[in-house]
């Protein structure tokens, strides 16, 4: 893909912090713009749908809504651009998605655009290459950065902190101890939002085999009602049965599905704490930072603390104030703090 040429006479520098997520892609920009879009991309299937939709490409919820008329892509899976079958198409969809999120940041034509993009902590080189390829068409210089690190950097929590970034495809764990986290400081697992969706769908199907639903419907239910609390209001949803909307109580199923990611999270925390300097382990336990879309599950911080107390003897969990933009805000801060010569060298 051709790299974006800089303007003849740059009149400013626009920094972008981009969180390219499996479920949502968010941007925070140095012009004050903050935008988020569901990570869906669709292209009209044929001339008829092109004429009807009046667009060459659709993004986010609009693409989801019109997906029957579209070649529909969710280009990111487990936090990286999907490879395998349709890899080229996923790469193009990801590039278009990056282009769209940059466009939504509303850069001026006469500005240089420098972006820091959050990538999963343990993404492979081919995934990082794909993200960079997608970005270079739309920004003048781009750097990748570990997602959980950018969350911590955004909150100035660089010492003795354990960051948990719960996305749709992956949950990233990062141990911050006053230096750049290395591979051994980071753990990624796939017990994240999509896993909760699958569990919830499975549990509802087992309990109510007659109910008809799609994974999208389950995802919407989860986003509205997700909770791990022991005491929660009954969750009654209408699902069609042979075409007729029928009420179902899925309170237990939602709680069980949301709780299913907690033990693997505690496993990962245990791993990162256990192999850390014993003198500082207690400080790590007392500063666990919970971010990402998954952190919006009600009661998750309390449940994590409870299980940490059970298995590790202590635990204090703090939620990020803005789960959707936590990663993007941190990436923006990194972009701002990066010296000029570094940006120049990577152009």
């Amino acid at each position: 893909m051709p790299a974006l040429q800089p303007p003849a006479k740059p009149q400013g520098v626009l920094y972008l912090g981009i969180d390219l997520g499996t479920s949502r892609t968010s941007v925070s920009a140095s012009n004050g713009v903050r935008e988020t879009v569901a990570s869906y991309v669709g292209y009209p299937k044929d001339v008829v749908s092109r004429k009807l939709l009046q667009k060459d490409v659709l993004f986010g919820d609009e693409a989801l809504e019109k997906r029957l008329s579209l070649d529909f892509y969710r280009p990111l899976g487990h936090g990286v651009i999907k490879s395998g079958e349709n890899s080229e198409k996923n790469l193009k969809a990801a590039a278009d998605l990056v282009g769209e999120i940059v466009r939504r940041a509303r850069p001026r034509a006469d500005e240089l655009v420098y972006a820091v993009i959050g990538a999963p902590a343990q993404a492979q080189i081919h995934s990082k290459k794909a993200i960079l390829d997608a970005a270079r068409e739309h920004v003048h210089s781009a750097m990748l950065c570990s997602e959980p690190f950018s969350v911590a950097y955004g909150l100035d929590m660089l010492d003795d902190t354990l960051v948990i970034d719960i996305g749709a495809g992956t949950t990233d764990f990062c141990r911050m101890h006053g230096t750049m986290p290395e591979d051994s400081d980071q753990v990624t697992n796939t017990f994240a939002g999509d896993y909760v969706d699958e569990q919830l769908a499975k549990l509802v199907r087992e309990k109510y085999p007659e109910a008809q639903f799609t994974i999208q419907m389950i995802k919407q239910i989860k986003e509205k009602h997700s909770s791990v609390s022991d005491k929660m209001l009954p969750i009654v949803v209408n699902l069609p049965v042979k075409g007729k909307p029928t009420p179902f109580d899925i309170t237990e199923q939602v709680r069980a599905a949301c709780r299913s990611i907690v033990p693997p999270m505690v496993d990962a925390l245990t791993e990162l704490i256990a192999n850390f300097d014993p003198e500082f382990q207690d400080r790590l336990k007392s500063r666990v930072l919970l971010g990402g879309g998954g952190s919006m599950i009600k009661g998750l911080d309390v449940e994590l603390e409870r299980q940490m107390h059970e298995r590790l003897g202590a635990g204090k969990v703090v939620r990020v104030e803005e789960p959707i933009y936590g990663g993007a805000n941190g990436a923006l801060k990194i972009a701002h703090d990066m010296p000029a010569e570094f940006w120049e060298k990577l152009r």
Binding site: Q11, G12, V13, L14, Y15, A29, S30, N31, G32, V33, R106, P107, R108, A109, E111, Y114, Y153, D156, L158, G178, T179, M180, I334, H336, D337, M338, P339, A340, F342, W343
Partner: peptide, 27 residues
């Protein structure tokens, strides 16, 4: 037409920033 960035030049880390040396190393 876009919205202008608040920055006209590349900023870089301010010397007065909290944990400036650490952040410089991280950058």
């Amino acid at each position: 037409g876009g919205v202008a960035s608040v920055y006209k030049n590349v900023q870089g880390l301010s010397a007065s920033a909290a944990q400036a040396e650490l952040k410089k190393t991280l950058m």
